[in-house]
């Protein structure tokens, strides 16, 4: 036993002496960054990169609010990015002066969540909607009606996410209620719709979606476009429903949390990920659209191959709700699942 302990101790010493110059701690959406790119960055800059993942914006916000996270880079979605800026949770890195800024596709620059583009550089965008298993459901998919008021085949075979965020957004799109409504009467309509849908819902879960839909446990699942695309690319019989009422949109950006211990490496990483070559590789890995300039001939998910990334139905981006509006969202969700 002692021998093993000694060996381990020596091993640890060797490992730490072989450590890279700098460090970089990423806290990003689970499995969102291409491992090949991380390795490339790590080698080019002699930086040891550590990656942690989260599966909801809420998790990220809570962690940053709780204080000193020790992370150098995160990728919140637009409506949470705005909160983080307003609350002083992320660093002003004068992103508009970086080379990365020049590499942003002009239509994604200076949006409402970061008007002067001081805090963030976008990395991916996409949509959320209903994904069907085409082996199990052959009916129409061009309206949210079939999912919120399901009949026949889909009843009892629908799965929603376990967080209110996009789910309530989709219900609002269907009802024509504006995002972040502060009108209780309108939100009551949202609750009534979701309550009426509930008996037809098998599960509210954001985990394990591919296997739940793939195994036929459910026939339709609220999901994200890129995840559906990746699974479909791997042979799964999935299809993102292009619902005429629209899809819920999101855009994730790279930001640096306040007090990040390795700020310089984080800026380097942002520049690195924004080079057209790398942005293309990142898009090919993540299967979500890139808001950066890409190398057109190297893009795998073209319009022909991945129509779900190029929706022709309206895309409505989630907004930053006022506390009053957010309370109504939470109220709807709690009453739905009480």
């Amino acid at each position: 036993m002692k021998k093993y302990l000694a060996a381990t101790a020596i091993g640890l010493c060797l490992a730490s002496s072989a450590q890279a110059e700098g460090k970089l701690n990423l806290y990003v959406w689970s499995e969102s960054i291409s491992p090949a790119l991380i390795e490339k960055f790590s080698k080019e800059n002699d930086v040891e990169v550590h990656v942690d993942g989260y599966t909801s914006n809420e998790d990220l916000l809570t962690k940053l609010q709780a204080g000193a996270s020790g992370y150098d880079l995160s990728t919140p979605s637009q409506h949470f990015l705005k909160i983080m800026i307003d609350q002083g949770l992320i660093e002003n890195i004068e992103a508009n002066k970086l080379t990365a800024y020049e590499n942003i596709d002009p239509r994604w620059r200076n949006q409402w969540w970061d008007e002067k583009q001081e805090y963030s550089i976008p990395i991916a965008y996409g949509t959320a909607g209903f994904v069907i298993n085409t082996d199990l459901y052959k009916g129409p998919t061009d309206s949210l009606k079939y999912f919120f008021e399901p009949e026949g085949d889909l009843a009892g075979k629908i799965a929603m996410l376990s967080y209110p965020d996009e789910v309530i957004g989709a219900a609002q799109l269907y009802l024509g209620v504006p995002f972040c409504s502060e009108d209780p009467a309108e939100m009551k309509k949202v609750l009534d719709l979701l309550m009426a849908q509930k008996p037809a819902v098998a599960v509210y879960s954001s985990d394990n979606i591919a296997s739940r839909l793939g195994s036929g446990e459910v026939s339709a699942h609220f999901w994200w476009d890129g995840e559906e695309l990746k699974a479909r690319d791997g042979g799964a019989p999935f299809q993102l429903a292009m619902t005429k009422e629209g899809l819920v949109g999101w855009l994730d950006s790279m930001v640096i949390p306040k007090g990040a211990p390795n700020r310089e490496n984080a800026v380097k990483f942002i520049e690195f990920m924004s080079q057209p070559e790398n942005a293309t590789e990142q898009m090919n890995f993540y299967a979500h659209s890139s808001p950066m300039k890409t190398v057109a001939e190297k893009v795998v998910y073209t319009k022909e191959k991945a129509p779900e990334l190029y929706p022709e139905v309206p895309v409505e981006f989630s907004r930053t709700c006022s506390p009053a509006a957010q309370d109504l969202v939470t109220k709807v969700w709690t009453q739905l699942l009480q």
Binding site: L61, T62, K198, V203, Y204, T330, W333, T334, L337, Q338
Partner: peptide, 25 residues
């Protein structure tokens, strides 16, 4: 409750979690 029960009915654990995350309370 969330993985096996389908998360259709909240338990105290998930209620607390909701308040700290999406509920912002």
């Amino acid at each position: 409750p969330s993985l096996m029960g389908g998360g259709k009915q909240m338990m105290m654990g998930s209620l607390i979690q909701l308040q700290f995350s999406g509920g912002r309370n």
